[in-house]
Design a protein around this nucleic acid. Structure first.
Lengths: 340, 340
DNA sequence: CTGTTAGCGCGTTCAC
DNA sequence: GTGAACGCGCTAACAG
């Protein structure tokens, strides 16, 4: 079994009887080196299992080839349902980063914690940051993006905040969901989600828009605001279920929330979709496996990951990059019954 | 708005009218520096928003404060259901790493790809590696762990492979699941899962053990082996559903597989738990939200993350660390009906 | 084409 | 207590 001891460039150079520079050039595939000596150096390097020390290389090159991904969701992980949506988006980001030769540093803490010591751009740990979700930290993001252009966020495009964001067309998503519920003959449609979060706020806008388009009145009592926290999701679903309100449909603003709601509905003796139709949001992979199959609004996570990576790398390279709103799609399954 | 320009230690030293060494010592909190000058340097540093460059620091210290987490699951992500189980374990790992001041480098590629160039231990990118899952790459893991002790894997403890693994007692889990199905009065219990994967193999052992303990015969035709790949999960669930085999219970080896199966069962007109009882594995958070609530075997992901981190850091520090088998627990919900 | 020199930003000997 | 010098491992500028 060959030992994989880490060696230094100078050792390789010595063994190959060339200078460090030539060894370096050979390894980097520089055209400034003779084909013969290049082959020689490469062979020696392979022989002693040499690999360049990225740390030293990065120090010299003043770059890192690392992008940090931060999920505020994680800040209160213990209270939070591990939403598969995040994993799917993370996967897409990882794939795209990898394809471009970048590493992914995953952080559970926002960059502005510990008096900005956590900021990987300041500590030289990363070349850029992808922030997942804005929530309440929008002002901090604003400040961060103001100092560092190489920041991109996944979330809602808030007009007066001029940082680069990639996200779905949440207004249209909300509209589509609600429109579908209306088209399927439902009369009283409730809304379940934390409208203080920008993305959810937009979905609520779409909800009201669809109502208006159909000439329906908007009843504020049918909007149930729920923080993204497992106890609260549960409580709000319960609150809605036990509200005594008369509703025959619910637009739940995430698939996980929809599932939580449906399980409560069923526990309370109501059936889905017969008694109440439900549409979710995200098109998480398990929504197809749910019983009943969840009708939902699909976000294109693959495209999202691609765009986030493209933009953050472009910005790290000094280019300008604007925000992008991605189209959404209605996926019809069984949780709303059939068209009447 | 204050600019957060990255400055160097020598600049801070100059501004503080001390040498680089003293500045370095002051920032590191060394006792070799006078309290007065320490305060002074710190103030200057704060004033110009100085943060030490970790890259340079690490190069000097020959360490990285980074642990790489690799999930082979990701190698074929496009075909794979984003299993929430992974996200929950990842979260636990991240929390523990963070608490110890370590960063988490997430990799979609195993360290032995690209002729070992991906190995973060060789490139100086990380101090240790946590591998999630063994699957078919067991020989490569074996070789890797042989060269580098600072590797820990989540999976099944295969006796003849002497690397450090943390995992659940899968045999006992399989036994508990099957025993429950028996105790609930089921006669013909099928097994659904890819027994070529070590962990699933152990669960299958437990399945047979419970059967034997109850004096039941083992019918190989009731074991349906399914690769962890979305199409195949679906196909195998379908295969099982349409097999014509006479079964009134299924032990599905993950919650996601269980959900997929149940949705097929229902589509085929059978009801759960009345016609067939199902128990899953993992106790993923959404299993409580499923309809019907999924009876399952809980793995302690929080403990798992804690142990993985403790062991990898200990090993990176040169200490010995053996494998750990964690206890599992049966969580009874509605998918098996009530005890007869 | 190749070797010599210098320095990325920091921590740590060793003198004073 | 403090400063000067050195080197972590590598790449880029400059000669030749």
């Amino acid at each position: 079994m060959k030992k994989r001891e880490v060696r230094t460039l100078s050792e390789v150079a010595e063994l190959a009887r060339v200078s460090e520079s030539t060894a370096s050039r050979a390894l980097a595939g520089s055209p400034l080196v003779a084909e013969k000596t290049r082959k020689h150096v490469l062979q020696i390097a392979k022989l002693c299992n040499y690999v360049v020390n990225q740390n030293a290389r990065n120090l010299r090159l003043k770059q890192t080839n690392v992008i940090e991904v931060v999920s505020p969701v994680w800040q209160n992980r213990r209270k939070t349902i591990a939403d598969p949506f995040f994993l799917e988006l993370l996967g897409a980001i990882g794939d795209n980063l990898n394809a471009k030769g970048y590493d992914l540093l995953l952080s559970t803490q926002p960059p502005w914690n510990d008096d900005w010591q956590r900021n990987p751009l300041m500590t030289g740990k990363a070349d850029g940051i992808i922030l997942i979700g804005q929530g309440a930290s929008d002002p901090m993001i604003h400040e961060l993006a103001n100092d560092y252009p190489q920041v991109v966020v996944w979330g809602a495009d808030i007009p007066y905040q001029p940082y680069c964001v990639v996200g779905s067309d949440n207004v249209e998503g909300g509209r589509l969901a609600t429109e579908h519920l209306i088209s399927v003959g439902r009369q009283s449609i409730a809304f379940l989600g934390d409208i203080k979060m920008p993305e959810i706020g937009h979905r609520h806008e779409g909800y009201r828009k669809a109502l208006a388009e159909a000439g329906r009145p908007y009843d504020p009592d049918l909007t149930f605001s729920v923080p993204f926290d497992v106890g609260a999701v549960h409580n709000s679903a319960l609150e809605l279920v036990n509200s005594g309100k008369d509703f025959d449909a619910v637009f739940a603003t995430s698939d996980v929330i929809a599932m939580s709601l449906i399980s409560e509905l069923i526990a309370s003796g109501r059936s889905v979709p017969e008694d109440v139709a439900v549409v979710g949001f995200d098109n998480v992979s398990s929504s197809a496996l749910y019983n009943p199959g969840l009708t939902t609004i699909a976000q294109d996570m693959a495209l999202g990951g691609k765009l986030l990576v493209e933009k953050v790398l472009a910005r790290a390279a000094g280019e300008e990059q604007g925000s992008t709103l991605m189209p959404v799609k209605l996926i019809v399954r069984s949780s709303c019954g059939v068209n009447l």
